[in-house]
């Protein structure tokens, strides 16, 4: 990694808090990400535990979304993006160029900032993943998978009578839950959520948050949010990013009541955001 002297100067912060977990699902070590000339992530070290909900917070442009997109290699779709370091999912190294992203992304699903249902029916949206991955060999099996996923996303009762209508006909909150159903239909182990409620109204947001709590029983969830309240409500641990560096990671309660780092404190007290 070629760092200019200025960049090095910014590396002065040492991550404080509990970086590591006893039952890690993901082990991130020495992660550096840069876009063309500009470095976006500096030397992040972090564990994400099994079935834990971890929230990533920080001012906009702090690199939290970029960090998230590294975990299922979505940054591959950005030509200028370069990733260095190591991310281990169980025993598999994700950052290796030789890793096949297709099965990886089946294990690490992602929910995006804006609901992005495909221009297909509700049923086909959920069935899309199982179909491409060959997860159901019979129609009945697929039907069952779609129903289970919609139920787990808390959407089944609202849409069971109109499964063949286009996914885009749903309301924003329903669309986002459809996207979540679509993601869990593939039975991933980890779900990444990139500000999943940023374009939703408070009621829809509340439903999604409820859903996240339920999902955490079966999935490891990493969520990026710009809302500190949301982070406080849904997550067990919270990581605070600042200008591409992981400043502090701790028990959520701890971060919001008694942050160890002055930058974290400045952020949660609203001095910048």
């Amino acid at each position: 990694m070629n760092l200019s002297p200025d960049d090095r100067a910014e590396l002065k912060y040492k991550t404080v808090g509990e970086k590591f977990s006893e039952t890690p699902k993901l082990k991130i070590r020495g992660l550096n990400v840069s876009y063309a000339e500009k470095q976006a992530i500096f030397d992040v070290n972090l564990d994400i535990g099994s079935n834990e909900v971890i929230a990533m917070i920080g001012p906009s442009g702090c690199g939290k979304s970029t960090f998230l997109r590294c975990i299922n290699r979505m940054n591959d779709t950005v030509d200028s993006c370069r990733v260095e370091g190591s991310i281990q999912l169980d025993d598999m190294e994700i950052c290796d160029d030789k890793v096949d992203v297709v099965p990886l992304r089946a294990r690490v699903g992602m929910v995006f900032q804006k609901p992005n249902p495909f221009p297909k029916s509700i049923y086909d949206n959920v069935a899309y993943g199982p179909r491409i991955h060959g997860l159901a060999s019979r129609r009945s099996e697929l039907d069952g998978l779609v129903e289970t996923s919609l139920r787990r996303a808390g959407l089944w009762d609202e849409v069971k009578d109109r499964l063949l209508q286009p996914g885009t006909s749903l309301s924003g909150g329903q669309q986002q839950r459809l996207c979540i159903a679509r993601t869990i239909a593939v039975s991933p182990e980890v779900i990444l959520m990139d500000e999943p409620c940023s374009s939703l109204d408070p009621i829809a947001t509340a439903k999604i948050e409820e859903l996240i709590a339920e999902l955490s029983e079966n999935f490891t969830i990493a969520i990026v949010t710009h809302s500190m309240q949301q982070a406080a409500r849904v997550s067990r641990r919270t990581a605070y990013f600042h200008l591409g560096q992981l400043i502090e990671v701790n028990d959520t309660q701890h971060v919001f009541t008694n942050p160890d780092h002055q930058l974290t404190e400045a952020y949660i007290t609203g001095r910048f955001g």
Binding site: T77, A106, M110, N116, I132, H133, R182, T183, V186
Partner: peptide
């Protein structure tokens, strides 16, 4: 075709051609 649709499909683990054939072209 918005990038979000492509990302949604790729994020589920679809290959490039699956994304094109089943998401981009229908859109």
């Amino acid at each position: 075709v918005p990038r979000a649709l492509r990302d949604g499909s790729l994020g589920l683990g679809a290959t490039q051609s699956e994304t094109i054939k089943q998401v981009v072209i229908p859109a």
